[in-house]
Design a protein around this nucleic acid. Structure first.
Lengths: 196, 196
DNA sequence: CGTTCAGTTGACTAAGGTCAATTCCCGTGG
DNA sequence: CCACGGGAATTGACCTTAGTCAACTGAACG
């Protein structure tokens, strides 16, 4: 296990909440490497998924399947946590699939371990609270955008906003899916916008 | 303070996490009554809001204002918590307004108190985690519905689903707003559906 | 070179938005 | 008890935008 990469992970967690050596020592023995080739699933819909991951390298796509159609809700990039968090919470089969869009390297750890840390340590419980709050704020923002903005406005916001990575690194047809429209419509929206 | 109503509140919190007398005693002294007349705001956009509420009686509407248009994201009914939770979290001015749709009676307590309980007690920290997880799961469901379903499908789901209260007790033009469409369109959707 | 897949473009359809008129419901005051 | 006023809901006519299907272009890769 590369110490630098482990430290990167620890630092990322510390963005949520301070972790002293003792807290960290409760989790670190359970952390292992995972590699995914482009196209492989990290999480598969219908399976009970037991791991959370931290992306060292690569990016991933989080989507639902409805009537055979994929609906993308999120993209993950390096230095962030990834997993079917809320499915894991209640132990149910995952409703979502998370797929590697590029070759990926992850650090992974079992969800159970995190849950048991919630019991053992107030600091980890706080971590869990702040993580859930962070995820909820992201979901609230996404939800309110879907309710308040037209597809075109959502695309403009993606270009101008703090999500440049998505524009720069994700193929256009996935972006269209993320915006809730077809690739054809996104192409037309782009045309409309450049003609202004 | 009516003991029965206080107990109702305590019981509702216990749905999230068990609270012993000591835990409960940390919060209960800070709980006070609040009454709102139909049309009054419980939370107003742009203000720093410092209270969470528990609805004893009545129902409320949670909405954003965008370009002068209201966009309803949620309805609250008796026996549930209400407040601008995520605005309160980071101490910023509220982005949302919560308005009484009927005369309402609430129990209310300061958000600061809850935050200080997170420091004082592991049990309350856990309460905070589970509350945030609960809210996040609700947001995820709402978000995925907006992404995956057409307005008509969303309306059908509202009728058939576990949200009957909304259909029964909320005026139709607010429901339309909640679905992300105009009252005119909802009326047509209803017509389409009954003619089947 | 072909094959494949992403992206663009055109023609047509479907669904929701907008504006305006009308009807329905309900509460209030004469 | 009835008449009136006002807001909610419905309906019609027309517009705008995204979806669908299909053809075409272009770049990547063997």
């Amino acid at each position: 296990m590369d110490e630098k990469e482990l430290l990167k992970f620890r630092t990322a967690l510390t963005r949520f909440v301070p972790l002293n050596d003792e807290d960290w020592g409760l989790l670190s023995p359970f952390v292992t490497y995972r590699n995914l080739a482009k196209g492989e699933h990290w999480i598969t819909e219908g399976k009970k998924e037991q791991y959370l991951g931290f992306i060292l390298e690569g990016n991933m796509r989080h989507y639902y399947i409805r009537n055979g159609e994929e609906k993308t809700t999120y993209f993950y990039f390096e230095n962030h946590l990834t997993g079917s968090y809320f499915s894991a919470l209640n132990g149910a089969a995952s409703l979502v699939t998370i797929e590697a869009l590029t070759d990926c390297r992850l650090l992974s750890f079992p969800y159970d371990v995190l849950v048991s840390l919630y019991d053992e340590s107030h600091a980890w419980e706080r971590f869990g609270r702040i993580l859930a709050e962070y995820l909820a704020m992201g979901l609230e923002e996404r939800m309110s955008e879907l309710l308040m903005l037209s597809p075109e406005e959502r695309y403009v916001k993606l270009i101008e906003g703090n999500k440049k990575k998505i524009i720069e690194r994700i193929p256009q047809h996935y972006i269209a899916n993320y915006l809730g429209i077809t690739p054809v419509s996104l192409s037309r929206i782009r045309k409309r916008l450049t003609s202004k």
